[in-house]
């Protein structure tokens, strides 16, 4: 079942077209990878889906056209983005960061349950709830950013470079959580430089080159694709 679909999405920054009419779709309980070089338009695509950047084209979520909705309305409908570079609130405590993710919700009991759930996913955060978030390590900040996003009870999670700058061990941990979340029925759109690792857990992959999708296939097939191998494995 298609949960999120993007049709003919285009973004221009002052005359420069960063994204040139791309289309993609995302099913419930699946991971889709969006890979490509620096400046290919991956982050811009995610920002447009979240509503942070103005875009042409159409974004549909669960059958509803959300193209003209502001970002916070998209979040309350169930689209949550973990932005590139984590962007946690460094001066707030870890607990406050997590709570901010659920600030727009009113269902107290469910929020408390979700709070317990994200702490179970990221036990490290539990030990640091009172700590100021800016003092966390890079990996812990990534976990916190994901925990914060999950607190909005999303149905679609947009992950922008979750493995950037992390130690290999931490990368493995983050990827295993991503697979767990998929198991819980979340639809995940994954943007990664670490293409092979991303494609391995993805049911589908799109290759983005200078704002256009040049290839799309199942994750497995893309890993074996000579072009992709050449670009990402050298």
């Amino acid at each position: 079942m298609t949960l999120l679909s993007v049709e003919d999405l285009g973004v221009s920054y002052g005359g420069i077209r960063a994204v040139k009419g791309i289309s993609l779709s995302l099913d419930k309980g699946s991971i889709v990878a969006l890979i490509g070089a620096n400046g290919a338009g991956k982050s811009t695509t995610l920002r447009a889906v979240s509503g942070l950047t103005e875009a042409s084209g159409r974004v549909t979520f669960d059958g509803e056209d959300i193209t003209d909705l502001p970002p916070h309305d998209r979040v309350s409908r169930g689209i949550s983005q973990v932005p590139e570079g984590r962007r946690i609130f460094g001066r707030l405590s870890v607990r406050e960061n997590i709570e901010v993710g659920a600030l727009h919700r009113r269902d107290r009991a469910k929020i408390a349950a979700d709070f317990e759930h994200v702490l179970k996913l990221f036990p490290r955060l539990k030990e640091r709830l009172r700590q100021v978030a800016g003092t966390l390590s890079g990996g812990e900040q990534q976990m916190l950013a994901m925990a914060r996003s999950l607190m909005s009870a999303p149905r679609v999670l947009l992950l922008d470079e979750p493995s950037m700058g992390l130690a290999p061990q931490m990368v493995a941990q983050v990827f295993s959580v991503i697979e767990d979340l998929k198991g819980e029925g979340l639809a995940i759109l994954l943007v990664e430089q670490n293409a092979i690792a991303a494609l391995e857990i993805s049911s589908r992959g799109y290759v983005l080159e200078s704002g256009e999708i040049t290839l799309s296939d199942s994750g497995r097939a893309l890993i074996d694709h000579p072009g992709v191998r050449k670009a990402y494995l050298g």
Partner: peptide, 25 residues
């Protein structure tokens, strides 16, 4: 309060706050 937390979040990072579902405006 919720408003206070939202204010502190927006003052640190407006885009990240919007991505948390906060109505920045």
């Amino acid at each position: 309060t919720r408003l206070g937390k939202a204010m502190r979040a927006v003052s640190e990072d407006r885009d990240a706050a919007a991505l948390c579902g906060i109505d920045v405006g």
